[in-house]
Amino acid sequence: MSKLYGIGAQFDSAASLLAAAEKVREAGYRRWDTHSPFPVHGIEQSLGMQRSFVSAIGLLGGIGGFIGILALILYTSKINYPLVVQGKPYFSLAATFPIMFEVTIIASAFITVGGVFLFCLLPRLYHPVFNWDKFARATDDAFFVVIDAGDPLFDEALTAKFLSELGGKNVELIEE
C-alpha cells in the first residue's frame, strides 16, 4: 500500500475540468487522465487522443461477418451437400441476403464492443484510483484529474502545487 500511484485533484464542473486539462497538457505532462461522470467533449484533445480506430474495427467486423457467412452458405449449400429444394438454385444471393445481413450486423456489433474494451483495457476490476476515497463521486457529479507518478515531470510537491493552482480541490496522493 505504500507505493505511490499518483496525485489526484477534484474539480466542480465540466468547464473547470476542461480548462484544467488544457493546462496540464500545456505543462507537458503525458501520463495522466481525467475522470468524469459523463463524457466532457474537447477533453480528448488535451489527453492527446488521435483518431480512434473503433469505427475501422467495426467495419472490419462487419466485412468479416459477411464473408464468413457467405463462405458458410456457399460451402454448405453448394460444395459440401448440394441439395435441390423446391427446384431452386443451390445458391442465390437474393434469397440468402437477409441472413448475410443479420450476421454482418451481429459480427460488427460484437467486434465493435470488443474493440472498445480492447482500447480501454477493460474489464479491469481493480485500479489504484479506486483506493482514493473521494473517487466514488467520479461516477456521480465530480470531475477528477489524476497525474501518474510515472510521468517524467512528476514531482510530489510541485505537481500537487500545480494542481491546486489550477483550481483543484482535495489534491491528494493516491497509493497503489
Binding site: L47, P123, R124, L125
Partner: peptide
C-alpha cells in the same frame, strides 16, 4: 460495471462505440 472509472480516454472510445452501435441497431 467491468471496472469502469469514467476515464477521459475511455469515454473517447466508448462514445465512438456507442454511436456505431446505435447506427448498427
Amino acid at each position: 460495471a467491468l471496472g469502469w472509472r469514467g476515464s477521459g480516454r475511455h469515454w473517447f472510445y466508448y462514445e465512438k462505440g456507442y454511436v456505431l452501435l446505435a447506427g448498427i441497431c
